[in-house]
Design a protein around this nucleic acid. Structure first.
Length: 311
DNA sequence: AAACCGGGGAT
DNA sequence: ATCCCAGGTTT
């Protein structure tokens, strides 16, 4: 859950999530869909599917117990070198290094390496330094956590608090007055613009939902039936792009959401249809299906708002 | 090696 | 508006 997600954001969700899935057996028994639904709003939903897959494998291969060796952890889905090292060192006291975004920043400054934060040579050097530090530490877990905590609270990206840094005297970047400019920002491609045309279709006290493709953005999550396009679409193109017949297609709302890699323009329509096939969901089912954050807000606002029969 | 995958906080 | 976040998998 902490992968690419700020700890403060995880803290809001951790207790309820672990309360719901207290061990691997419980998670494996719950099923992937339930785990992904519990993940809703956290983003990078593949993590939830991989976590579920790891739970299944822990039950099948490790008798339901999280393995304690770095190698066995690394073999689990969704667990890479960082996560394996974190679990091994913090939970099991193994002398295993970790490198996350915080550690990269701390080491780049300690050693005054003027490179981009995602530069492979810098990252390699960070693993070597982290390995040396954890090798000399009294407690591997405490050392690893302290490196990350230093990066999160003192050695911050924009304006590091060098005046209250416990390792100021060891820091080459501080000595040369360049801490704030190291490491250099990662190069990031511009956001791709996507136009999304979700259509609200109601029947009785239900709404038609469907599952998104298993690849791409919001893979496998549920949505109002939608047409996706790199360019704006006219009404006929939206109607034909849905894959089933609709009538009286009319626009009701537009808004925009920024993601790291996308700028998504929502063009919300309502329509009527005589189609009866598909997942016509009442309010309870709608609430149980995993949706992306903007889609959830849209459905709750447009469909389940209090002034219509289903609400 | 590069691309892909959310959502929100901090500045 | 920009940069980043206790990254991993796929191509």
């Amino acid at each position: 859950m902490l992968q690419q997600t700020q700890a403060s954001r995880v803290a809001e969700r951790f207790e309820s999530f672990v309360g719901r899935f207290p061990d691997a057996r419980t998670m494996a028994a719950a099923g992937e869909n339930v785990v992904v639904a519990a993940w809703e709003g956290l983003g990078y939903y593949r993590r939830a599917r991989l976590l579920y897959a790891a739970a299944v494998r822990i039950c099948d291969v490790h008798d339901g117990e999280v393995p304690s060796s770095t190698e066995a952890l690394l073999a689990l889905p969704g667990i890479g070198r960082y996560t394996a090292g974190s679990i091994a060192s913090i939970a099991f006291d193994c002398r295993t290094p970790i490198v996350d975004g915080n550690v990269i920043r701390v080491v780049a400054r300690l050693e005054a390496i003027d490179a981009a934060a995602d530069d492979p040579a810098l990252v390699k050097r960070c693993w070597e330094t982290a390995d040396a530090l954890v090798g000399a530490a009294k407690s591997p877990g405490v050392l690893n956590e302290s490196l990350m905590e230093l990066g999160a609270t003192v050695c911050t990206p924009r304006l590091p608090s060098c005046d209250r840094c416990p390792v100021q005297t060891c820091c080459a970047a501080f000595r040369s007055g360049r801490a704030a400019s190291m490491p250099r920002p990662k190069s990031r491609p511009a956001r791709r613009i996507v136009h999304l045309y979700p259509v609200v279709l109601r029947r009785d006290d239900r709404v038609l939902l469907r599952q998104r493709p298993l690849r791409g953005i919001w893979a496998g999550l549920w949505e109002l039936p939608s047409v996706e396009s790199a360019d704006p679409l006219e009404v006929p193109a939206i109607a034909s792009g849905l894959g089933f017949k609709v009538d009286d297609l009319r626009q009701v709302e537009t808004f925009k959401r920024l993601l790291t890699h996308r700028e998504v323009h929502f063009h919300v329509y309502e329509a009527s249809t005589r189609i009866r096939r598909g997942h016509w969901c009442d309010r309870v089912v709608s609430a149980e299906l995993a949706m992306a954050k903007p889609m959830r807000s849209l459905v709750d606002r447009r469909v389940w708002a209090s002034d219509w029969p289903g609400g």
